[in-house]
């Protein structure tokens, strides 16, 4: 299937596509770190962008909306599948991942994962992270605080 040409940014469709071109890879990686599952990352991200397209210009801040929607969709998928610790990629699948960190991340809760990833990978503030994952800055600060400690212990164990 051929890749479609970028639509003009002035149209609602073009605006969403512009957000996609700039943010999709980061969002997908964040969802991967959050869920531990590349299928959930792809499904959640795709559904969020598809919903944004269906809104047809009715979004004040498409970028923020897509991030929030994607995390909520991923949270729903996680809850439905009851997956908290990923077993890694499916047999035969090939996708490079920093396994030491990834394995350690899977030992902390999904929200701690999201907070840690968005903070240390993306440089987002607690307030921004709270907006993205549907939480409060205070809760995010706790996630970062507790997540750091648990992550450091997990990485020390993984490194042995």
């Amino acid at each position: 299937m051929t890749r479609s040409e970028p639509t003009q940014r002035s149209t609602p469709h073009g605006q969403v596509e512009a957000v996609y071109r700039e943010h999709f890879a980061h969002l997908w990686r964040a969802l991967l770190a959050y869920s531990g599952d590349p299928d959930i990352a792809s499904d959640a991200a795709a559904e969020a962008f598809a919903q944004a397209l269906r809104r047809d210009g009715d979004l004040r801040t498409p970028e923020r909306w897509v991030w929030k929607a994607a995390f909520r969709i991923a949270a729903g998928m996680l809850k439905e599948r009851s997956r908290f610790v990923a077993l890694g990629p499916a047999p035969g699948a090939e996708w490079p991942v920093p396994f030491e960190l990834h394995d350690a991340l899977m030992q902390v809760s999904p929200r701690q994962r999201a907070a840690l990833f968005l903070h240390y990978y993306g440089g987002y503030s607690p307030g921004e992270i709270a907006e993205l994952i549907g939480s409060t800055p205070s809760a995010v600060r706790v996630h970062l605080f507790r997540g750091r400690k648990r992550l450091s212990r997990s990485m020390a164990e993984v490194s042995r």
Binding site: M1, S4, R29, A46, F49, Q51, R54, P98, Y121
Partner: peptide, 21 residues
């Protein structure tokens, strides 16, 4: 360590997204 995730190649799903929409 988190920057290592930048080496993970994200799929291009735009065509799929447009079909879903």
């Amino acid at each position: 360590r988190f920057d290592e995730y930048r080496q993970v190649e994200a799929p291009d799903l735009w065509d799929r997204i447009e079909e879903m929409a």
